[in-house]
Design a protein around this nucleic acid. Structure first.
Lengths: 227, 227
DNA sequence: TTAGTACGTCGTACTTAGTACAGTACGGGT
DNA sequence: ACCCGTACTGTACTAAGTACGACGTACTAA
């Protein structure tokens, strides 16, 4: 079996850790976390499975690397930005956008215990921002834990939604609600019918509401700079 | 191969969906989500793998069922309780306790799209509580999305922590920090050393702080009852 | 130019998953 | 006594992660 060296060009680029991880990210975007298998990844790279093991230690390392790639997509806050609230809001919105682009990532994060460089750089920038704004370390801990919990949790809730956009939810939802013993969950059903399924409602708009609460709470911390 | 019907007693109880799911819950608690395999589960029940398929459709149904069992452990809020804030706080704390008892569950939730009866009952009770307190549906939507995002997200952050208790964190953390290029992440390292690793700090205490913010924010919604 | 060598890739194969299919034992109704 | 449905078992197929050793290519040094 000879190499098809007849085909020149960039397809002859040798494998590398970065190429493996980028392909893994694309594959997960296309197929979800379960579609990210060693064999499929090797196939996408035009290579046999075992070739990958010269560039990454094992599949776990691929998962760690891919999660770090996701963090690398986040806008870093600027510690010298005009307003710390603005920077924090931008960071949160960027995070939500990125986690929305890579829905599979949120479920992966739970099992990752080894933050990568992009993750650390990101946390460093957030701490730097709040420190520059004048927050105490204690209040930084409160602020970061609270904000991250909200953003992660919101992304998790969105990942759990059984539908994608706000369209074609209604007939699907109607079926589910009809099949459900309506008198078992009367408030849930009423809430769904009279609010969630009404034309104007969009769950993703809840993000802005919650984020506003979070930022107001942080602004009320003892060491928060007076505006 | 004959049945060992010689052994009488409760061990001869036939399988059932409930017995399968309870064993699955115990197994996941003991071994984590990855330890929950069909073969291991069958082994724990003293039965061959394929026997399970007479009681559950497939592994996905087991995961759905187990997640619902976790929800079944939550304290239901009492819509007639003396104070809606108290009930909401109790519910949030119960949720955090339960998710702490079953750390593997949070990662599973992301992929579950079919809420079980306990899950629905739980949501129904929360909506009933807020409705009885006088909240509008719009504000209920804000409140529930916000509170759940916080609780889920906090649990996710705790699941990501590389250690368990507050003990023996320090030497481990010191190693990690020392191995880390300290000037790459100066704020992160300073924050870790000067605050997180100080004797009094306990990440889990951040839950109470955040929960206080959440409940205050909800109490400030337009339709919230005046206290 | 040639021989050696290191490295990247491949072939094969082992282990552990989930689960399809076809039995087989046992208990209850006729 | 027969039959049959229900609950369980045996066997085996597919897909995944990955260990091990062979092999081809490209660079180095004589």
């Amino acid at each position: 079996m000879q190499r098809s060296d007849a085909t020149p060009g960039p397809s002859r680029t040798p494998l590398s850790r970065a190429r493996v991880l980028n392909a893994a990210l694309d594959l997960a975007d296309a197929q979800g976390a379960d579609g990210l298998t060693i064999r499929a990844l090797a196939g996408a790279l035009g290579v046999k499975p075992m070739a990958l093991y010269h560039h990454v230690q094992n599949k776990d390392a691929i998962l760690d690397g891919v999660v770090d790639l996701v963090f690398a997509e986040l806008d870093l806050p600027d510690p010298n930005g005009p307003s710390w609230v603005g920077e924090l809001r931008r960071r949160a919105e960027s995070m939500r956008t990125v986690l929305g682009r890579h829905r599979w990532a949120i479920g992966l994060m739970e099992s990752r215990r080894a933050p990568g460089p992009a993750t650390l750089r990101h946390h460093d920038a957030v701490i730097a921002l709040l420190h520059a704004a004048g927050f105490s370390f204690g209040d930084i801990a409160h602020a970061v834990a609270f904000l991250d919990a909200f953003v992660y949790g919101f992304a998790l809730q969105e990942a759990m939604l059984p539908f994608e956009g706000t369209d074609e939810v209604h007939e699907l939802a109607e079926e589910v609600l009809a099949a459900m013993p309506a008198n078992e969950y009367p408030y849930f059903v009423a809430f769904a019918r009279e609010h969630v399924l009404q034309p104007g409602y969009d769950f993703s708009a809840e993000f802005a509401v919650g984020l506003g609460f979070v930022l107001d709470s942080i602004a009320g911390l003892p060491s928060a700079p007076r505006s």
